[in-house]
Design a protein around this nucleic acid. Sequence first.
RNA 1: GGAGAGAUGUCCGAGUGGUUUAAGGUGCACGCUUGGAAAGCGUGUGUACUGAGAGGUACCGGGGGUUCGAAUCCCCCUUUCUCCGCCA
Length: 426
Amino acid sequence: MLDIKQIRLEPEKFRSGLRAKNAEDKLDSLLALDEQRRKYITKADDLKSLRNTVSKEIGELRKTKQSADEKIKEMREVGIQIKTLDTDIKDVENKINQVITTFPNIPHKSVKIGKSEEDNETVKSWGKKPILDFKLKNHLELSDDLGVLDFARSSKISGSGFPLYMGKGARLERALINFMLDFHAEKHGYTEVFPPFLVNRDSAFGTGQLPKLEEDMYLTTLDDLFLIPTAEVPVTNIHRDEILSEKKLPIKYTAFSACFRREAGSYGKDTRGLSRVHQFNKVEMVQFVKPDESYEVHEQLLKDAEDILQALGLHYRVLNLCSGDLSFAAAKCYDIEVWAPGSDKYFEVSSVSNFEDFQARRANIRYRRADNNKVEFLHTLNGSGVATPRLMIALLETYQTNEGTVVIPEILHPYTGFTTISNNEI
RNA sequence: GGAGAGAUGUCCGAGUGGUUUAAGGUGCACGCUUGGAAAGCGUGUGUACUGAGAGGUACCGGGGGUUCGAAUCCCCCUUUCUCCGCCA
């Protein structure tokens, strides 16, 4: 959530920021409502002050057995006026909230202004496209031939987009999850957490999924709970409505979760196989940090995610997203795209975002400074480290052999218990 | 699902209609003391809104109500604990 006081102070900064994010500019009506709200509050507070004073006097009069009827009568009138004003205030505040909660975060100054993904900049790449001098298969052909994924049956069970991993495929999936969790916990110093997969509205609001992105999530209507689209939601909300001491920062969590996304309206080629699915697994990293450290941490978070791909020996590139391609809550974001030679394209496996205080404001996550004891909003960041389906695509396609088998990278052997896949039997 | 008991500031915890302006402790900050530290002593210390400021207002799990006046009384909801039931 944006800070209405900051908007009041520097409207032009926010105007251009919202424009850079392709968001509708409703600043003027917002500022008008804000002014109206403050007028009402001043009036109501004055009346309440009067009521408090007179009520005390009534108490005194009662104590000395004097009549207070006249004052009680007056205050009854004042009470009615207060009630009216309080309703007016609430109405205006509801209107303000309706507008301001739909405003996206504005981009950091280091973010390139751009319209769409075409304006994203590749800032680095690691490794090289592998040279494989035989006829390459894509992950669908490989998983069909090896029997590690069964899309025909999974669509019978649930519909399209709900992958069913079989045998070595299932084991490899689990190996990837365990490997990544261990890696972040042991090498990068994250605390492992295992969050709930369903969350309430307050949590979904806190990270910015609500109100705008409600349709992207699955909702269980009987209990009004959302299936999480990412572990970011429950993990960031761990500290909702809390004041943390500065000594505890940075807080670094890593979490595995299944992720559920409706992906409404995304039909077409990209929906085949594992490239775009409704349910997938992801290991996520979330950090709570002091505001002046968040951009340093952002770079570190990117490295933590890259380390996974490097350990697996997969070629990837990193994009610095332009303003127009940033997600609702992000002020800056790197995407990591891994190379899949059989498909001859890059697939996004990680988004590493700095939300600054946008989520902290919504979720009311603050910290107490050590130097002056003041309370302020902290900064939240998160990054996928990483999502498995497209990682699986890259692994299968990168490590395929001309015999049609797949060689497992050595670092995964302790987790898989096998070194190659030639069928789906364990 | 049923019955009972709770939810108060960073944390613990007192407070059942009007000097609550939320006691006391703890934590934190600063100072004294010390060779240094601990202990001890002293002082300060909730959040938000509003206001140029002085100040004012709100907030005791959330929402509504009663009253001149609510942490306190009433209703609804959430949640935690205990017991019972069900259950992987």
